[in-house]
Design a binder for these strands. Structure first.
Lengths: 242, 242
DNA sequence: AGCGAGATTCATGTATTCAAGATTAAAATC
DNA sequence: GATTTTAATCTTGAATACATGAATCTCGCT
């Protein structure tokens, strides 16, 4: 017993992975809307796969909270539940606050912090040229790297999952330039506090930073969902629906 | 769109669920040891099922961190990684501390706290008659209910998962009577602090409580695993192995 | 005996088929 | 016309069959 693993893990290019990513994109791009119902065979046919990998992908998405299975009656995109998103944000704050406090006690902290400071120096960046989608990716990695650097792998994993689940609404935050500018400034402040080992202050700034983003997103989301629904509706009436 | 779900969720008695529970029990009871390798067909034959539900159960267990799939080379019980358990404990502390601070601000707090106080009053319980396995269940629900009462469902869900994953080693904590007595006293103290809305104090007590349990478990676990391994070995030599 | 090439076995990943019951539509009745 | 009954359809859950490639074993060779 206790033989070490010898072969590589599941290959990246599996059908299951492809279906999983495609479905997730569909949900993220609002091509499937909260409440929409569909069947496994539907998805299988659309994505040129059999039901087996489709089912595996759907179960993964179910565990991650994106879809629900209705016993012998198809699947459903989990309806938007804003209270739930609020709770996700809350949990994110809890985790990142804890991470900050852990981080200042790690030896590797300085290195990570100074690396992040290179990226988030508002003076070195042409703020009016920054693209929103890029900032979203950078913002995600800012928060994830802070948590990862705290040294608790499980915490980092949960936080990573949270980030994925919040992505669907968080990216709306970077559609306005003032939010982009604010993000740079706030990140710089947080890093400054971290560099000085002022973990309490850093945690406080981080909390405010996330809360701001949370509030901004809350304002925008409903509007966007309604827009997407209208576009789809129009497509349906024009006879262009699948 | 937006049709409400009409049929009940997946029935409890599904083959997948049965296989899932059986495998988890095997792992918890040390009938399958960390490092052990096995195949899907093995499990299917043993549990009288086809490979399909076995695979679904295994993937669930994989996501929860109990097993690994080796590409085209079978499955493996994830080797014991004590650092990882330490991290799980750490995360548990983080979540429960946050929950305590949230809890004192909830209106429903008083009710939950006084209910728990009924259970964990050391004066009302014949401590020498308490059974370890019962205390473990009660202890789990003590911590879970505090987190649940804080009002963040996602936090409660993650905490619940943590509890499950730690169960395999946590139950070893209640095999000695002094730990049982200490558990009652510490829980009572925590509840007292909560009732007085001293969340800082409660968080501090809770942290110490969990750390104690963590240390006690750390001492016992290795010994137990070795014992289980010896028993199995003996069975193998006696020709009684499956 | 030690070693290596090739065939074979066996593993998971995927596709297909079968089963049971929920949904839906039609038909029959009041 | 409204409502109940019934039959056809459709859905997921589970079992089985097939494909692909890794691991292993055999057999011949040095």
């Amino acid at each position: 017993m206790s033989t070490a693993p010898v072969s590589p893990p599941r290959p990246r290019g599996s059908v299951t992975d492809r279906v999983y990513e495609a479905l997730k994109q569909d949900i993220f791009e609002f091509r499937r809307l909260p409440g929409d119902r569909f069947t496994e065979s539907d998805v299988a046919q659309r994505l040129n796969a059999s039901r087996t990998p489709v089912r595996e992908a759907l179960y993964r998405l179910q565990r991650e909270g994106y879809v629900d299975v209705l016993f012998r009656a198809g699947w459903q995109i989990r309806p938007f539940d804003f209270e739930h998103f609020e709770e996700l944000y809350d949990l994110r704050i809890t985790l990142e606050r804890a991470a900050v406090h852990k981080l200042v006690r790690q030896e590797s902290a300085e290195k990570v912090i100074s690396q992040l400071q290179m990226i988030w120096d508002p003076d070195r960046v042409a703020l009016d040229r920054v693209v929103g989608s890029t900032v979203r990716v950078l913002d995600e990695s800012f928060h994830c790297e802070i948590v990862a650097a705290a040294g608790n792998r499980e915490m980092a994993r949960i936080h990573q999952e949270l980030t994925e689940r919040l992505r669907i609404i968080r990216r709306l935050d970077f559609s306005k330039e003032n939010r982009i500018k604010a993000t740079y400034e706030e990140h710089a402040e947080i890093l400054d506090a971290l560099a000085r080992k002022r973990s309490d202050h850093a945690a406080q700034l981080l909390t405010a930073h996330i809360r701001t983003s949370q509030a901004a997103v809350r304002d925008i989301t409903m509007e966007r969902i309604r827009e997407a629904a209208e576009v789809l509706q129009r497509r349906v009436y024009a006879g262009d629906a699948g």
